[in-house]
Design a protein around this nucleic acid. Structure first.
Lengths: 334, 334
DNA sequence: CGTGAATTTGAAAGCGATTTCTTTTTCATT
DNA sequence: AATGAAAAAGAAATCGCTTTCAAATTCACG
């Protein structure tokens, strides 16, 4: 460790001013005579000085850090949201710091505490399943934004997609194409998004006067393999359907593969609709009709909202329109 | 801001000991009588005390933070590597902090400086294109690990995949299936991985005594759309081929779509091989034969290596075997 | 019991900034 | 030129924790 740390004192000495003055030009906190300011700036550049963020944080109270609590690294949708946050923060002076909650309340709680210990100036929660009242505490202590999860009463501090309405829309699209036997591949049973999408599916059926048939619902867990299995089980139980609505794209891909294996054509024999519009859905064959969930934009909105919160600016609600990416995996029912 | 910060002093007072003692039980830095230790621990729990990480960092020198320099958030491969790092760090007491380089040397340099200013205890670079000598500087100043990029002389501090050999292997597989007219969809021209894969492709051809035909090489930029375009241009120029080796899976997906549009069957008419083995390649139709690049494992290895570095432990080299995920997108050449 | 060594504890000095409070300069104005 | 107000610069306190160093306990053994 030969790294002799360059401190504000070194700069001050070399520029013939006091620490205070250096600090002032560093933060633009109060006027400094132009000549000195220049001298300081030049010295800093010359010595390639980087102020110690810890010392600043300790003294000033601001860490210029934003904590991000993720839940399941590896899921395309949540990853995209996270990427959006990173993107949205990229221009600012804030650095993102991560802690993973793994969808386990215990772990999520610890993650939040770690971040608070690190003096983050704000916290962005990506999904998660901590109780609402618990989050209320966090929100009280720290500027907080929740994204990809619906929370009552959070207003613009919660950026969520209307899963129920979107699922309904998707199924209505299928119904509009003449389908009446529509199977559904559910997501994780306890996951609120999965529940909302399932309810949306039922709502659409009901609206169209199609009786709900539990035999047409297969359970999955949001990943590709479970989509394969779902279709297998649907077929095994002798269900007959002309369309499938999967609770996310990954399961739709799995379903598509299972159909392919059976020689069932998409969309000629069975139509398929997914949910998320992850980048790949444009390139599968046939390109997948799916609910466009603007994951990256949601993340960016969360970042922007946080930046606003931190400057006591108004946080404006963002509109997340429900939109179907209509492609080629849906055909009219013969 | 009513959040009255709880300090070590509060704990000390309440537990009837000195700050020093509290610090000692906090860090286990020197023995403390059991009765006091318990009293301190209880008080900390009772008050839900979180030590201020900044103060610790300032005083102790260690930030317990690891800086991660990413390059292009949004690319499945690099994202997987990043996820691996996050995973590998999850158990430890270190928190990951991010800065994005966007493949722009200027920005990457700034990202590294930001991280150093934040007193990170180590830096993990995911890809990147800063000059080797510049990185050497970083490595001198800070424990550094580079992943997903080959750097001469870095030994186990560099976790990279042999792109050349893997590409060669992939093309040899195609040749083994009887193909002699093998097209290649390149990645970004200046990207060293793209170059290595292209060279590997050429090497395989040469080995098999197949003359290299520049007409069979189409350029792409690693994303899906460019795969579509590449196939279009190949066809437009009247190239004839029975197989395609794409420099990554995304382009392979795009190529597969373009072929689908033209009614060209995979693998019956044209065989297809990708590179990366991203999760989705298992669920496209037909499942894609591709080079298995253990992205997540590479990230985990980087994290593990960093943790070792930080404890002055031996950093063991990790073996990244070249392996083909053989699936159904390749058929024997008729 | 007494004594020196070993073990625990506490007091105080930093760590590298920010910020308040003075002191010194600078500048109008009379 | 003299004077007071405004502006700029510096000194010193502070942020919350670690760590060195010295003081206080505890302990073992003669």
């Amino acid at each position: 460790m030969t790294r002799k740390t360059l401190t504000i004192e070194d700069i001050a000495r070399k520029a013939n001013v006091s620490k205070s003055t250096v600090s002032r030009v560093l933060n633009n906190s109060s006027p400094v005579k132009e000549s000195k300011r220049l001298a300081v700036i030049r010295t800093m550049e010359q010595l390639d000085y980087r102020p110690n963020a810890f010392a600043r944080g300790l003294a000033g109270g601001l860490s210029m850090t934003i904590g991000i609590v993720t839940q399941n690294i590896g899921s395309p949708f949540y990853d995209s949201v996270t990427q959006g946050i990173l993107k949205g923060l990229a221009g600012s002076d804030y650095s993102p710091i991560f802690a993973d909650g793994r969808w386990i309340p215990e772990v999520e709680r610890a993650a939040i505490k770690t971040l608070i210990g690190r003096q983050v100036d704000g916290i962005i929660l990506v999904g998660g399943n901590l109780q609402a009242n618990e989050l209320e505490e966090v929100r009280k202590a720290e500027p907080t934004i929740v994204v990809a999860r619906h929370l009552e009463g959070w207003g613009p501090q919660c950026i969520a997609f209307d899963n129920h309405a979107a699922a309904r829309e998707a199924v209505l699209h299928l119904i509009g194409a003449g389908h009446r036997s529509i199977a559904h591949i559910r997501g994780i049973k306890t996951h609120e998004d999965a529940i909302a999408r399932f309810e949306g599916y039922r709502a659409a059926l009901e609206e169209a006067g199609i009786p709900f048939d539990p035999e047409l619902v297969a359970s999955g867990n949001f990943n590709g393999q479970s989509g394969v299995l779902a279709v297998e089980s649907l077929i095994a139980r002798g269900a007959s359907f002309t369309a499938i609505f999967a609770a996310n794209d990954e399961m739709a891909f799995g379903a598509r593969l299972a159909l392919f294996r059976r020689g069932i054509r998409v969309p000629d024999d069975v139509s398929l609709v997914g949910f998320d519009d992850q980048p790949n859905s444009l390139y599968v064959t046939p390109p997948l009709t799916t609910v466009r969930q603007p994951a990256v934009a949601m993340g960016e909105a969360a970042a922007a909202g946080m930046l606003n919160l931190l400057q006591n600016r108004e946080v404006t609600a963002i509109d997340l329109p429900i939109e179907l990416a209509i492609r080629e995996s849906v055909a009219f029912c013969r």
